[in-house]
Amino acid sequence: MIKHLAAFAVFGSATIGGAANAANFVVQYTAAGNAVSGVSASIFNGVLTISDTPDIAGFFRVLSITGTRGSNAVTLLPPGGFPADSTIPNDNLFRPAPNYFTELGISYAAGGNFYNLYFSRDLRECSSNTSVTCSFGSRNPVSGFRVTPGVVPEPATWVMMLVGFGMMGASMRHRRRPTATAYA
């Protein structure tokens, strides 16, 4: 049993010491839409997965985005990938604090349209399809913007929990061997 506890301590200290590779943030907001390109107002619900290393200004690279805009699934566009307007070379940077995005923002696609969420004095969104560029008048403020940390445990937490359950199960299954009592 001591050998098992020693192995558990070494394994546990090795896994707990490792840093997480990414963090998740739940993002929700209501977008006004764009009458020029025919994009209607809708609600965005999604999860941003960000890198673990910020840049000098405290922004993290957005690695992936999952969720919906209205009833359409969203897909993250690569940096510089906002197709409708070359003046918006999105950088896909996010900071989990006010002024959440840079002026270049993050871009995603949903339902055949393209969206760029960025910060310029306030949070704004440019929505477009491939044939209409984002003119200054089509850049609308967003409302009800909320960011909350995701609740996905780190891998080390899962490992520790599973090892703990395994040890509890093993100790419950282990039966003490009856000792023979000898009378003289």
Rank of each mutant, 00 (worst) to 15 (best):
G70R: 03
A9Q: 12
F119D: 10
G150M: 05
P79A: 10
S37W: 02
R139I: 05
M160C: 13
S138E: 10
L77G: 03
R121Q: 13
A41K: 01
G33F: 04
N116L: 04
G111A: 06
P141Q: 07
L5I: 12
R61F: 09
Y183S: 04
D52C: 09
G58I: 06
S120N: 15
S128G: 09
A35R: 14
A182I: 13
S107N: 06
L63W: 01
F101P: 01
G38T: 02
A156V: 00
D85K: 00
R146S: 09
R124I: 01
A84R: 01
V132W: 02
H174D: 05
I65Q: 03
H174F: 11
A110S: 13
T53N: 08
R146G: 01
S143A: 12
T75I: 04
P153H: 10
P155K: 05
S143N: 08
S135V: 08
G137T: 10
G150W: 01
N129I: 04
T87E: 09
L63H: 01
T68Q: 09
A23I: 00
N99H: 06
V36F: 14
N45P: 00
I56E: 13
S51G: 14
F60M: 01
N129T: 06
V132L: 07
K3D: 07
R69A: 12
Y118L: 09
V163K: 10
M168C: 15
A170P: 08
G144D: 11
P89H: 02
N21G: 11
V26F: 08
I43K: 07
D52A: 15
Q28D: 12
G46D: 03
P178A: 10
I16M: 15
N129R: 05
S143G: 05
G58M: 06
T49L: 08
G46M: 03
T53F: 09
P79L: 06
N24I: 00
N140H: 14
F82E: 08
A57K: 13
D55S: 03
F145H: 08
I106R: 00
K3L: 12
A73S: 15
V39Y: 00
N129E: 05
R124P: 08
A6H: 11
L63I: 00
L76Q: 03
Y100F: 10
A73R: 11
A19K: 07
A7C: 11
R175S: 15
C126W: 07
R175E: 13
Y118S: 05
S13R: 11
A35E: 14
P141L: 04
W158N: 12
R124G: 06
F114K: 01
V26Y: 10
G164Q: 10
T133F: 04
F119G: 05
M167V: 12
N113D: 10
S40C: 02
Y29V: 04
P153Y: 13
F11S: 15
R146Q: 13
T102A: 06
T53D: 07
Y118N: 01
R61H: 11
S71Q: 12
N24S: 11
G112L: 01
V74R: 00
Y29I: 07
G164S: 14
R139A: 15
P83F: 00
N129P: 09
M1D: 14
T130Q: 07
N72S: 15
W158A: 12
F25Q: 03
R95G: 04
A156Y: 14
R175V: 10
